[in-house]
Structures are given as structure tokens and as C-alpha cells.
């Protein structure tokens, strides 16, 4: 669920286009609401309410009764729906392996590459201190 939620919609959409969509029911049609986000005082202390974020949830049921759930930040109904479907398919022994290979693994690789690129850009701005020696001792 983590990879499905963190991935960009266009990446999820292009990976998922490769999987066979099994027939399914919408147990809960995509619905947008809010979650209240929290921080901690001094980063590690007691919690406080920071502010809300939009989130869209969806739940599906495959014909064999398997249920899939998704909660995804933002208001993209299609993203939540596809994530819920993938969540359901991931639970099946055969479909699970297929979705892992065609959707989850490439998305995970893409996420890793995105994070790595951002991190190397930040790392390039790291300060290399050097000490300037002023005057002579003798």
C-alpha cells in the first residue's frame, strides 16, 4: 500500500496498464475527505495537531470475495481506485506475483530513483568548510 500511495499517478497508471483488470465491485466508491496530520513537540515529544490534508479512499471486492483498500493523499479518485484494486490483486497467489512484478517492483525502483536524484542534488549543496590561516606565527 505504501508504494501505491507514494507513487505519482502517471507512474501508477502506466505500470498498471500492463495488468489484466479482474472484474470487481466497488465496495466503497472513491471518496475524498480529510485526515488531521500531527507533529511532535521538539520533534520527538508529545503530539499536537498540525493541520489537515485531503485524502481519497476506495475499497473494491473481487469476484472471489477478496477485498482491497486504499487511502491516498490528495483528491485523485482514479489513483485511489487503482491502488485499491492492486491491493486486492496482491492478495491472490497468482495475481499477487504478477502485480508485484509489473506494478510494485517498477514503482519501487522509480521511487528509489526519484529519492536518490533529490538526495544527490541536496548533497551537492553541502558545505565543505576549510580553515583560513591568517598571519604568520613567527
Amino acid at each position: 500500500m505504501r508504494v501505491l500511495a507514494l507513487s505519482a499517478w502517471k507512474d501508477l497508471e502506466s505500470c498498471a496498464s500492463a495488468i489484466a483488470i479482474a472484474p470487481y465491485d466497488l465496495l466503497r466508491a472513491p471518496e475524498t475527505g480529510l485526515v488531521m496530520l500531527r507533529g511532535r513537540m521538539g520533534a520527538t515529544g508529545a503530539a499536537f495537531n498540525l493541520g489537515e490534508a485531503t485524502v481519497t479512499r476506495c475499497a473494491v471486492r473481487l469476484r472471489d470475495g477478496t477485498e482491497g483498500h486504499a487511502y491516498v493523499l490528495g483528491r485523485n479518485a482514479a489513483h485511489a481506485r487503482l491502488a485499491a484494486l492492486c491491493d486486492a490483486l496482491l492478495q491472490g497467489p497468482d495475481t499477487g506475483a504478477a502485480v508485484t512484478a509489473t506494478v510494485i517492483a517498477p514503482l519501487e525502483a522509480k521511487l528509489h530513483a526519484t529519492h536518490l536524484a533529490a538526495s544527490t542534488k541536496a548533497a551537492a549543496t553541502k558545505v565543505d568548510f576549510f580553515t583560513m590561516v591568517r598571519g604568520e606565527d613567527d
Partner: peptide
């Protein structure tokens, strides 16, 4: 097995 809720929640 979860039964359906409202079909149009709002």
C-alpha cells in the same frame, strides 16, 4: 465479506 453502504454517500 463486507456489505455495501450508501451507493451515493453524500
Amino acid at each position: 465479506m463486507t456489505e455495501h453502504g450508501f451507493s451515493d454517500v453524500a
